[in-house]
């Protein structure tokens, strides 16, 4: 009889089992399973989000560094062009200055030559005058000495005239 009792389900016990199980299901569903599973899912999605955000930030960083590289490259090119330009300007300036200087020098030389010429002409004129004076004086003397006879006088006149004609 005892062993039969072991495998004979009691209706009252079944009733209480149903009551307790349903109670447990209703309460735990609302107060345990939902919040626990929701927190797990939220955590999972937040981890996924954080990972994708990190990935995005990494890509952005790469993009930025590529950008930086480009800016640097541009700067380098600009620097080179600036240096080139400066060099050209410098060369220009130098050559211009050289040209100017040489033209100035030429000018100076020219003016100096002109002046020298002037001075030379002046001196030559003075010298000519002097020579003329001296010549006249000499001529006077010569004439004085030469013109002692008529023949020589005549010859002189002729010669002078000949010269004058030329």
């Amino acid at each position: 009889m005892d062993s039969m009792q072991l495998v004979t389900p009691e209706i009252g016990l079944m009733f209480w089992t149903v009551v307790i199980f349903v109670l447990l299901l209703v309460i735990l569903k609302k107060f345990a399973w939902k919040p626990i599973l929701k927190s797990v899912d939220d955590r999972n999605s937040s981890i996924t989000e954080a990972l994708s955000a990190a990935e995005k930030a990494k890509a952005e960083m790469e993009h930025l560094s590529a950008n930086n590289e480009k800016i640097l490259q541009d700067a380098r090119l600009e620097r080179d062009s600036i240096i080139k330009e400066a060099r050209a300007i410098k060369e220009n300036t130098i050559s211009e200055a050289k040209n100017k200087a040489s033209s100035e020098a030429e000018k100076i030389i020219l003016s100096a030559k002109a002046q020298i010429n002037n001075e030379k002409m002046k001196a030559m004129t003075e010298l000519k005058n002097e020579i003329a004076d001296i010549s006249i004086q000499m001529a006077e003397k010569i004439i004085k000495s030469e013109l002692k006879d008529v023949k020589s006088q005549k010859k002189l006149i002729e010669e002078t005239l000949k010269n004058q004609m030329n």
Binding site: I20, L24, L28, F31, A32, K34, P35, I36, S39
Partner: peptide, 20 residues
């Protein structure tokens, strides 16, 4: 069974509250 119910409600009640 009521004792088990009590333990389950206690443990999972606390856990659910914490999870929230």
């Amino acid at each position: 069974m009521f004792l088990a119910l009590f333990f389950l409600l206690l443990f999972f009640g606390i856990s659910g509250y914490k999870a929230k």
